[in-house]
Design a protein around this nucleic acid. Structure first.
Lengths: 217, 217
DNA sequence: CGAATTTGATTAAACGATTGATTAACTTGG
DNA sequence: CCAAGTTAATCAATCGTTTAATCAAATTCG
């Protein structure tokens, strides 16, 4: 990332951000004390104010890091789809499924870190940090998805309708982040650490295919 | 609700619960101070400990009230579907849509109160309170929904597959609760207070119909 | 080149403010 | 009159932040 070799301060900065991501994710912003964060980072408490200006500044830095990393990991997939646009029919559906697959894979990694809870919280309480995540990530995914939906429908869908369906389909994936505990119980998952079981993607695939039936040749 | 006329204590009890539901929903459990809650309720701070044993007991009471009210409002719909079971084909799809309609209507009311944020938070941090909501509400909805999906598919779906699809379809509705801010922006909603616009339900309906195509007679 | 100095980073300690909870005195209604 | 309900005051604990002193590593300079 950084061109210059990490100095002493940069090292502790990273350590604090890493620890803060974990603590914020586990207990939330308010319950996360600067003492607990600095202890988890193995640094002094005062360094939070020194490096980030305060607890709020540290939180912003955490959000910034999450958005940047999620963006980086998804940009290749989005770009690949974008260059192949406009797509129609079957190819649009296939692109849609590859996007879903990438999202699920990413969400598994997101789950492994403490990110999912932070993101979910931001959805409920859109602080200034939400702006970053939405502008740099969500809006791009939704834009691409709605374009694919329109293409897969043979452009027979009004723009607002396509966007609405993009949200609806996105919900099918997001549910495993925002409602993971209910999903875990209802589907009888025991070891969620391994990520979303692949039979979920199999069902999702079937549903998508049913949604955009292949035109008879 | 209560058979006996409300005594003096019951009145303030209700006032505290009402205020606590609002404050917990707006700022979360940790940031909600007992002073802020009691002030919003127009009562003395010590009455929280007196009536509920403490902040945690008050939170449990809030969750209990939410679960009870949500249960009450949905039981009629679920019962109606249950008595008509087993359903197949078209009738199962129609029942599914009526369930979705009821859920969306309920979520609009949930949104109007401070409930949605409390529920969403519980999904992320499943405290003991989640147990109540899941057992008394979510599991019932998901059971009914998966039965309808199996029926609409002509019972050609394995049980686990039907349950998986129930979660996926539930996500299409829950997304407007858990990810409402992103949905609001992407769809350009300005006045979310009026509830989810009905064109969302129209698209959802189309997607459900496409999902379970009517067999040719 | 090596000593002196400046700068950034880190530390322990303390700050005032706010937290949830408790106490003891006081009202009120049955 | 008494038990249930309510009140203001206070408790110790914890919160985020600030302070002054110390450390380490560049930087400057003789």
């Amino acid at each position: 990332m950084s061109s210059v070799p990490a100095s002493r301060g940069d090292h502790t900065r990273d350590a604090i951000i890493r620890a803060a991501t974990d603590v914020f994710g586990r207990v939330g912003y308010d319950a996360a004390s600067t003492r607990a964060i600095s202890q988890a980072a193995g640094t002094n408490q005062a360094l939070i104010s020194y490096h980030f200006g305060g607890k709020e500044g540290l939180y912003q830095a955490v959000i910034d890091g999450i958005a940047a990393e999620m963006e980086d990991s998804l940009v290749p997939v989005l770009d690949e789809i974008q260059t192949a646009m406009p797509m129609r029919g079957r190819s649009a559906v296939e692109a849609m499924l590859s996007l879903f697959s990438a999202l699920m894979g990413q969400f598994n990694r997101v789950e492994a870190s403490g990110w999912s809870r932070i993101i979910a919280r931001e959805q409920q309480d859109p602080t200034a940090a939400f702006e970053i995540i939405y502008n740099r990530y969500m809006s791009r995914v939704l834009d691409t998805l709605s374009a694919l939906i329109a293409g897969a429908s043979g452009d027979a869908l009004a723009e607002q309708a396509a966007r609405t369906r993009a949200i609806l389909m996105m919900g099918q994936i997001l549910v495993f982040i925002f409602s993971r505990e209910a999903a875990r119980r209802f589907l009888g998952w025991t070891n969620l650490e391994d990520g979303i079981p692949e039979d979920v993607f199999r069902e999702l695939k079937s549903m998508v295919y049913a949604q955009f039936p292949e035109p008879r040749p």
